[in-house]
């Protein structure tokens, strides 16, 4: 009798409210779902906002960007130990991952401290301590990106980016070229070499152009094409092997050039080859036909 009562009462509770286990599972599912959505939102936002703008440069020794974002705990100790206030922490809205260190070379470039205090200060492993020679740093790669406004490309001797380069004559050299515009001057073109450029950004800072710099430090991924591994550079192979890998080339005689070195097709003054007219042509002074006769 009492047994029967008990069974009935338990049935009654079961019919009025869902069993506690099911209710617990339902509650837990909704809570977990809400928390999961929140986390998913944060994760997707983080993924979407993880692209680094091209002008934002990570400190020396920084891990590759994807690993850097997993390692940097955003404490700012590298910023504190930077003696030149180069580094700053990204604020929300800066389009750099919030709280991570970066610098903009046009504002304040890296001064390439020999003791690399920012790397020493990092507790998180985001800045790699194997970097002990700042010359080995590869924060980015300078690119002379605007050849139309660079003063040296216009034929002037500005040379400022070359002069301020801490790795002068290695990271940036001046390459002498013929100036086809004047036809009688040289152009000394600042040329960056990736095996020495640390990406410090002093060239970008020093560029004399009033607004944007003609030379910019870019992320290496953006600045450099990938090497054509399938293409053997004949001159490098020749240097490595001590001789040409394909042997000497067959020399075929060229009529009228028999006395010259093979491949030399230049005409020397005094050669009575095609142009025998001693009077050079002059540009027309006015109109199509100036009427000038020799």
């Amino acid at each position: 009798m009492t047994m029967n009562d008990k069974v009935q009462s338990s049935r009654r509770t079961a019919s009025s409210a869902p069993p506690p286990r099911r209710r617990f599972l339902k509650d837990a599912a909704s809570v977990a779902g809400g928390a999961g959505l929140l986390a998913l939102g944060a994760g997707m936002y983080a993924k979407q906002a993880s692209a680094l703008p091209a002008t934002a440069i990570r400190p020396p020794g920084a891990l590759a960007e994807s690993e850097f974002l997993a390692a940097c705990i955003r404490c700012g100790l590298c910023v504190r130990d930077c003696p030149y206030d180069t580094l700053k922490l990204a604020e929300l809205g800066d389009s750099v991952a919030t709280g991570t260190p970066y610098f903009e070379a046009r504002d304040i470039p890296c001064e390439m401290c020999e003791d690399i205090p920012c790397v020493v200060a990092c507790p998180s492993g985001a800045l790699v301590r194997e970097l002990t020679d700042i010359g080995e740093a590869r924060m980015g790669l300078a690119v002379l990106i605007d050849q139309e406004n660079c003063l040296n490309f216009l034929g002037l001797r500005c040379d400022v980016c070359y002069r301020v380069c801490p790795v002068i004559d290695k990271a940036i050299t001046l390459e002498r070229m013929h100036n086809p515009r004047s036809d009688r001057h040289a152009m000394l073109l600042p040329t960056v070499h990736s095996d020495h450029c640390t990406g410090c950004g002093k060239c970008e800072k020093a560029c004399v152009l009033p607004g944007e710099s003609a030379i910019k430090v870019l992320p290496i991924k953006l600045a450099q094409g990938s090497k054509a591994e399938h293409y053997l550079r004949g001159w490098e192979e020749k240097d490595a092997a001590g001789q040409s890998l394909i042997g000497d080339q067959v020399e075929l005689p060229v009529r009228g050039m028999e006395d010259k070195a093979y491949g030399d097709t230049r005409l020397r003054p005094g050669d009575d080859a095609p142009a025998s007219d001693p009077v050079p042509a002059r540009p027309a002074a006015g109109g199509l036909d100036s009427g000038w006769k020799p």
Binding site: A39, A42, G43, Y45, A46, K47, A49, S50, S66, E67, L69, A70, C72, I73, R74, G76, V79, K88, L89, A90, E91, L92, G93, D94, A97, T98, G99
Partner: peptide
């Protein structure tokens, strides 16, 4: 995501960091 994704939005670390290093948004 292979990143500290929560730290993009974590108000706790962001508030303290903002007070010391600058707020932004």
């Amino acid at each position: 995501t292979g990143s500290l994704a929560w730290e993009w939005v974590n108000p706790v670390s962001m508030f303290h960091r903002g007070l010391i290093f600058g707020f932004g948004l």
